[in-house]
Computed example of a mutant assay.
Amino acid sequence: MSLNVLGQPLQACSFDPLTGYLRDGCCSHHDSDRGQHIVCAVMSEQFLKFSKLSGNDLSTPRPEYDFAGLKAGDQWCLCALRWLEALQKGAAPKIVLAATHENILDLISLETLVAYAIDRPYFE
């Protein structure tokens, strides 16, 4: 069973748009996923612009991949290193702790993740 950063069962990130390395809605860890798509992020205009300028355009539809493009408010499983890069550049999107895989704790502290969490009231 996959666990989230809270040590609880990993919750789904999004089914619409359908996300996850396996397109199963979850930001699970898979050995074959070199990008570690384990951070459930809530897209913002700032992050989408940052990602596009960094060479990963997530907002433009790509019908050949059955990808409608993301917009602000959509939840999406991001690569761990992309979220860390966005954090370092001041463009990190909010995240959903309950749907973010525990392996991100190898790179980023829980304290930092909590500061960006939309499900932060869980701690208060």
Results as ranks from 00 to 15, higher is better:
Leu6Ser: 07
Leu6His: 07
Gly7Val: 09
Gly7Trp: 05
Pro9Lys: 12
Pro9Met: 05
Leu10Trp: 03
Leu10Tyr: 06
Gln11Arg: 15
Gln11Pro: 03
Ala12Gly: 07
Ala12Lys: 12
Cys13Gly: 02
Cys13Met: 02
Ser14Phe: 09
Phe15Gln: 08
Asp16Val: 11
Gly20Cys: 03
Tyr21His: 13
Leu22Thr: 10
Leu22Gly: 01
Gly25Glu: 00
Gly25Asn: 01
Cys26Val: 11
Ser28Cys: 05
His29Leu: 12
His29Pro: 00
His30Ala: 08
Asp31Val: 13
Asp31Trp: 14
Asp33Phe: 06
Gly35Thr: 06
Gln36Leu: 14
Gln36Cys: 11
His37Val: 02
Ile38Asn: 13
Ala41Ser: 14
Ala41Asn: 02
Val42Arg: 15
Met43Asp: 00
Met43Ile: 05
Met43His: 04
Ser44Pro: 04
Ser44Arg: 09
Ser44Ile: 07
Glu45Ile: 13
Gln46Asp: 13
Gln46Arg: 15
Gln46Leu: 13
Leu48Phe: 04
Lys49Cys: 07
Ser51Thr: 06
Ser51Glu: 01
Ser54Cys: 11
Gly55Asp: 00
Asn56Pro: 01
Leu58Met: 11
Thr60Trp: 07
Thr60Glu: 04
Arg62Leu: 13
Tyr65Cys: 03
Phe67Thr: 06
Gly69Ser: 09
Leu70Ile: 08
Lys71Cys: 12
Lys71Gly: 09
Ala72Ile: 07
Gly73Leu: 04
Gly73Arg: 11
Gly73Cys: 04
Asp74Tyr: 10
Asp74Ala: 09
Asp74Gln: 09
Asp74Lys: 12
Gln75Ile: 06
Leu78Asn: 05
Leu78Cys: 07
Leu78Thr: 06
Ala80His: 12
Trp83Val: 07
Lys89Met: 11
Gly90Gln: 03
Ala92Glu: 00
Ala92Lys: 05
Pro93Met: 04
Val96Pro: 00
Val96Ile: 14
Ile104Phe: 03
Ile104Gln: 02
Leu105Thr: 05
Leu110Gly: 06
Leu110Asn: 03
Glu111Ser: 14
Glu111Met: 07
Thr112Val: 15
Leu113Gly: 09
Val114Gly: 02
Val114Ser: 05
Val114Glu: 09
Ala117Thr: 07
Ile118Leu: 08
Asp119Arg: 11
Arg120Gln: 11
Arg120Cys: 01
Pro121Tyr: 08
Tyr122Ser: 09
Tyr122Ile: 15
Phe123Gly: 02
Glu124Gln: 15
Glu124Val: 15
Glu124Cys: 10
